[in-house]
């Protein structure tokens, strides 16, 4: 077993070179390179963390914006509803008003027309009385040879007209 049989001759060389090369490894690789590698990893992790934080913040901001927008929208919707209701009310009112005006005008026209009709009828009735009275005088003169005064004839005719 060379590990034991050669030990007396080689132990110092083994220990010496082991210290030399492990020392080199430790100082070049362990102290020189590993911290840089770890720093790179730490930087990357920090950057990823920062990016995630920024994304989270952006999301929160977007959510706040959305909430604010929803609120504004709800408000605007409500005011629009109000406007529509007011406009509807106004329109109804206007319709009602113009209807009332039109109705009044039509009523006035109708009553005026009725008055005219009544007048015309009355006039017509008066004319018919006269004609009837004339006719009655004429008939009485021709048939009975009686001379009836215009007033009597008119009174007789009127009575008939009145009694229908």
């Amino acid at each position: 077993m060379p590990q034991i049989s050669q030990l007396a001759d080689t132990y110092f060389s083994q220990i010496f070179w082991m210290l030399v090369f492990f020392g080199l490894t430790f100082f070049i690789v362990g102290r020189g390179m590993v911290p840089k590698v770890m720093a790179t990893m730490a930087d990357r992790n920090k950057r990823i963390g920062d990016d995630l934080g920024a994304a989270e913040a952006a999301r929160a901001a977007a959510e706040a914006e959305e909430a604010a927008w929803l609120e504004t929208e709800a408000k605007q919707r409500a005011s629009a509803h109000e406007l529509i209701a007011a406009a509807k009310h106004q329109a109804a009112q206007a319709t009602h008003d113009s209807l009332a005006i039109a109705t009044a005008r039509i009523d006035a026209d109708v009553s005026a027309a009725e008055a005219r009709i009544a007048e015309a009828r009355a006039a017509a009735l008066g004319e018919i009385e006269l004609v009837a009275a004339d006719a009655a005088q004429e008939i009485a003169l021709r048939v009975a040879g009686l001379t009836i005064s215009a007033d009597d004839a008119r009174g007789a005719v009127k009575g008939t007209f009145v009694h229908g």
Partner: peptide, 27 residues
């Protein structure tokens, strides 16, 4: 004390070198 550069020392050197190359490549 004898500090002969033995085959053992050579492979220690090779291991060190390989390690330097390996970690250096990831730097």
């Amino acid at each position: 004390h004898n500090v002969a550069f033995t085959n053992s020392a050579l492979w220690m050197a090779i291991a060190t070198l390989a390690l330097v190359v390996f970690v250096g490549g990831g730097l």
